[in-house]
Design a protein around this nucleic acid. Sequence first.
DNA 1: TCACTATCCGGACTTCGGTCCGTTTCGTCT
DNA 2: AGACGAAACGGACCGAAGTCCGGATAGTGA
Lengths: 209, 209
Amino acid sequence: MENVKTVFDLPVIESDAPERQDAARNRERILCAARRLFDERGAGCVSMDDVAEAAGVGKGTLFRRFGSRASLAAAVLSERERAFQEAVIRGEPPLGPGAPPAERLIAFGEAMLDTLEAHSELLLAAETGPARYTHPAYAVHRLHVTLLLAEAQPGCDAELLADSLLSALGAELFVYLRRVREMPLERLKDGWRALVLRSVPATEQPQPA
Amino acid sequence: MENVKTVFDLPVIESDAPERQDAARNRERILCAARRLFDERGAGCVSMDDVAEAAGVGKGTLFRRFGSRASLAAAVLSERERAFQEAVIRGEPPLGPGAPPAERLIAFGEAMLDTLEAHSELLLAAETGPARYTHPAYAVHRLHVTLLLAEAQPGCDAELLADSLLSALGAELFVYLRRVREMPLERLKDGWRALVLRSVPATEQPQPA
DNA sequence: TCACTATCCGGACTTCGGTCCGTTTCGTCT
DNA sequence: AGACGAAACGGACCGAAGTCCGGATAGTGA
């Protein structure tokens, strides 16, 4: 995992040719406008037409660059996501390499919960539809969790368990627990910790290596 | 739990007055048409206009009875849901009362997975938007799981753990695992079993009572 | 039987995500 | 510089969920 490059957002598969100048300019305009609007009004109150207009760009252009609303939200989050991946792959323990897998899993979930707390609306927008599971960022999270689980508990179905655990960090559930059920953030973190410690033997020691 | 009445669908909060005759007739027509169309074409290919037309009813009426598409899908599923609740509350072990809590949790998840396998599209439609967590059926599932967890493991945060475990049975994740990742149903069941056994000490014995 | 009213009906309308396609612009090759 | 093809632009257009409100109707009380 530590040799993996961070994975950026790939809103639309760009084959190989470099981006044309106007395209790059418009992408920047759009991202800038979207960031501003989402920030001002909350992601829920911003339509794609709003973004297009604020960016001074046609709607077709908006959808050509970012294939969907969910994808645009993800792109706006990509900078943060990039930093997060960096911290996970090359950062300090316990989030980064060096700590025992259970510790790292706990730190991972806590970091995710902090991100959710700070950007729940945006993450909610980014997870609507089938977007969540097909997004490259999710693939990275899954891979990370899968590897940690496999390390902590060889023999378990780490692939599947990773998805199951990650589902507990979904934005929809988070918003529900936080806003409707009004659970404090700390409680969610404790819950995650307990969940991980149940899934992984706490008796694990720091990997020798 | 065993004394709780089954909870039916409450698509729209009807205060107390009994339903007017034409209203009841139209509800029936709508449900009938929806059931048929969903069955014929798959839930994804049926618009609300389609349902309204097939039911011989205006669109306004459709939305007056069932507040949203998700709610309509849930209503169509309500009969099955009712039977499921019955089996959980008063049926045979291990799904019904009598088996140790871990066993019942496993059986519960397996039954949910079977339902998902049979009606994934409909469940997917029923879970779009914030619908899932606010639906009465979800409240019943959560209560059931919460009580079993509390019984199996006093002292744990059963409320939260219930939601976390249930998130692993969400329709969106299911469809993704099943169709995109192409995991066999049995693997998902095994995964659920493992998840439950990790969350609950397997050393638990049938409740003394 | 006949008002009378609360409830319900229905379809036109709005909003919004997403698509299409004729037009424009960029970069390149001569 | 001029021409040419690929790529990008933009806004009209579409389908579908959900809202609104003027008109119809079922139950009620006299």
